[in-house]
């Protein structure tokens, strides 16, 4: 500190909780954005070399269950490739981990660290606290979505992906929605239990079980019905990157997330703050 700022009245401001989550968390957000950039720049430019007959032959020789589980059936189109490598795999893992970590930290983590008690002892209600925190989660994930959209669009010409910008937007909305539902599950579990570890466990459960259910369903006609329970299927079942927005799927993801935030709000408003 070289200069002492002239002191001024500190007045109440709108959305103080949201401001603090964003203000405290910008380093982490940049870190996640850099991670996404690394994945996009490493994987997507490989697409032209993936179209070789040798690679198509290689994939044909793999067990079909493995190919379906990885989502590699459609690797030879640009949208299929981006879906399989980014949205369906590493991008999914990245946004799920980021969302779960944030969601669990905003409720259970804040309560365990004593931050919630100190904040709620001031002039903010439980409901505004929860809603502002949920909004912070949404905004941070939306930033990752915008970053991913811009990066993918930036490599599109050089990587010869030939993506449609509208379909890319639809896929990003599904991807962010998928992160959001895992993150709000962590958020709600943290709000109900007051424990960060429970938040992480439930959020990770939603992400992993969602993935496994659709993978199992892809490999078994009898278990095909399981996919309706999979957020992963809600996001990608109708291949938005190739075929455009899947409104019912998006509705389930975003509506489900809103429901989880409502559960978190009701839970936190009703119980004692422990920790």
């Amino acid at each position: 500190m070289t200069a002492v700022a002239h002191p001024a009245v500190v007045r109440t401001r709108r959305l103080p909780v949201l401001r603090r989550w964003l203000g405290d968390g910008w380093r982490g957000l940049i870190g996640w954005a850099v991670g996404i950039a690394a994945v996009v720049f490493v994987y997507l430019p490989l697409y032209p070399s993936m179209r070789s007959p040798e690679l198509i032959g290689l994939i044909d020789s793999l067990p079909p269950e493995l190919v379906r589980t990885l989502g590699y059936e459609n690797l030879t189109s640009g949208s299929g490739y981006v879906q399989a490598t980014f949205f369906g795999l590493i991008g999914f893992v990245l946004i799920a981990i980021a969302a779960i970590a944030w969601g669990a930290a905003f409720t259970g983590g804040a309560e365990e660290s004593g931050r919630l008690e100190l904040t709620l002892a001031h002039g903010v209600g439980r409901v505004p606290y929860t809603l502002e925190s949920a909004l912070a989660l949404l905004l941070k994930l939306a930033v990752l979505g915008i970053v991913a959209w811009l990066l993918i669009w930036a490599v599109d010409p050089a990587a010869e992906l030939d993506l449609d910008p509208g379909n890319l937007t639809a896929a990003i909305a599904a991807w962010v929605g998928l992160g959001l539902i895992a993150g709000t599950a962590a958020f709600a579990a943290g709000a109900v239990t007051g424990r960060r570890s429970w938040g992480i466990a439930v959020g990770a459960g939603v992400a992993v079980v969602g993935y496994v259910l659709q993978a199992v369903a892809n490999n078994s006609d009898e278990l095909d019905g399981l996919r309706v329970f999979s957020p992963f299927h809600w996001a990608y079942g109708q291949t938005p990157l190739s075929d455009g927005a899947d409104w019912p799927g998006l509705g389930l993801l975003w509506g489900g997330s809103a429901l989880l935030v409502a559960i978190a709000t009701a839970a936190l408003a009703r119980r004692d703050i422990v920790g």
Partner: peptide, 23 residues
């Protein structure tokens, strides 16, 4: 009283003042 995180004292107090102000 437990205080964690990278946030500096001044910033934390400012945040709380924005909830309970004016200061």
């Amino acid at each position: 009283l437990r205080l964690e995180g990278r946030v500096r004292g001044r910033a934390l107090l400012r945040h709380l003042a924005e909830i309970s102000g004016p200061v």
